[in-house]
């Protein structure tokens, strides 16, 4: 049995708004654990636009997304949040006065209140919507390459038109028996030199570019892929015998398990009461991009404010019957927290 962590508030999502929720909870002396599916904190800022400057963060006239996240980390450090990365929150249930939360890697957390700061959902590979793809995952369908050697003498189909597709086509050309690159058009979104190298390999007959095709279906036995079926826009079909499919379509976010917790969700967002960010389930709050109310603006600015509203409302659940004295940070300073 793995150990169970106990905390005041569990925050789902370590994007900018999840991180700032740690600060707002910390100012009210509530301890936090934060969970994110990505290998790093920062949510969209880190995953989608790390080097872009933001101009609408109050008192930061021009700040790169990664720097914003680094500053938030510094701001919350005094509250010693425990951040669990690389795992998705998969289960949430109420047991007595506590919420029990479980992650995809088997971690267990007990919390009095939950703040969902999940953006558009957990980031993971953008999977092609083919019926039976799950069946082959791990064995013969892959979204990243761990060991190049695993593909020695194998027949590999690579799908996608970005850097990963091009780089792995170049790298695997040497070890694999056959390499096919499926892409919907002739243009690749990758470093021009790499694209040129890939096209040279194709001209030399080392790999084959299967253009303009899209993935249409997979066939195989149990978890072993046997054939990748691809189609053109006109419906012309081609069957490629293959041992592995490497699918490189970047990241996508999925609400996944959050759909199953009895929350009032429409089109990917959770309806909340805007002055408290309370959801329809008592003890669960939602903030940031995933929180919805009339005229909601999906801005980091709004998310920060929602974090403050949610923390104050969560205080009454974490500390029932206790007075909450409103204090400015200039008065209270940064409170010190007992270790969680």
């Amino acid at each position: 049995m793995s150990e169970v962590h106990t905390t005041d508030v569990a925050i789902i999502g370590a994007g900018p708004v999840g991180l700032f929720s740690v600060f707002q909870c910390g100012m009210l002396k509530m301890s936090c654990h934060v969970i994110d599916a990505l290998p790093a904190t920062g949510g969209q800022c880190t995953a989608l636009y790390p080097e872009k400057p933001l101009f609408d963060i109050p008192a930061a006239p021009n700040i790169n997304a990664v720097d914003l996240i680094a500053r938030l980390e510094r701001q919350i450090a005094p509250f010693k949040p425990v951040i669990h990365l690389n795992q998705q929150v998969s289960e949430l249930e109420k047991v007595g006065e506590h919420w029990h939360l479980r992650t995809s890697s088997g971690l267990n957390i007990r919390a009095r209140a939950i703040i969902i700061a999940a953006g558009a959902g957990a980031f993971g590979p953008n999977k092609p919507p083919l019926n039976n793809i799950d069946r082959f995952e791990g064995k013969s369908v892959h979204y990243m390459v761990q060991r190049r050697e695993d593909f020695r003498d194998q027949r590999i189909v690579i799908a996608g038109g970005g850097d990963s597709a091009v780089d792995w086509a170049l790298s695997l050309a040497d070890v694999a028996a056959e390499v096919y690159v499926i892409h919907r058009r002739d243009r690749f979104r990758a470093i021009p030199e790499s694209v040129a190298q890939m096209k040279a390999l194709a001209d030399a007959g080392k790999i084959e570019l299967v253009i303009p095709y899209q993935l249409a279906a997979l066939e195989g036995k149990d978890d072993q892929l046997k054939t990748v079926i691809v189609k053109t826009l006109d419906g012309e079909e081609r069957r490629i015998a293959a041992d592995h499919l490497l699918s490189f379509f970047g990241l996508a976010s999925k609400l996944g398990p959050i759909n199953d917790w009895g929350l009032d969700i429409l089109n990917g967002v959770i309806n909340v009461e805007p002055t408290t960010c309370a959801t329809n389930v008592e003890g669960i709050f939602a903030v940031g991009d995933i929180a919805h109310y009339p005229h909601k603006l999906k801005l980091i600015l709004s998310g920060f404010s929602e974090a403050a509203q949610a923390a104050h409302a969560a205080y009454r659940i974490v500390n029932p019957g206790q007075a909450l004295n409103f204090e400015h940070s200039t008065t209270s300073g940064i409170p010190t927290l007992e270790p969680a």
């Binding site: 953008n126 919507p129 996608g160 058009r185 243009r187 979104r189 899209q214 379509f249 970047g250």
Partner: peptide, 13 residues
């Protein structure tokens, strides 16, 4: 837009 469409599935003309 064309570049981002590369990451969408079930594309048509």
């Amino acid at each position: 837009e064309e570049d981002l469409l590369d990451t969408a599935h079930g594309l048509t003309s």
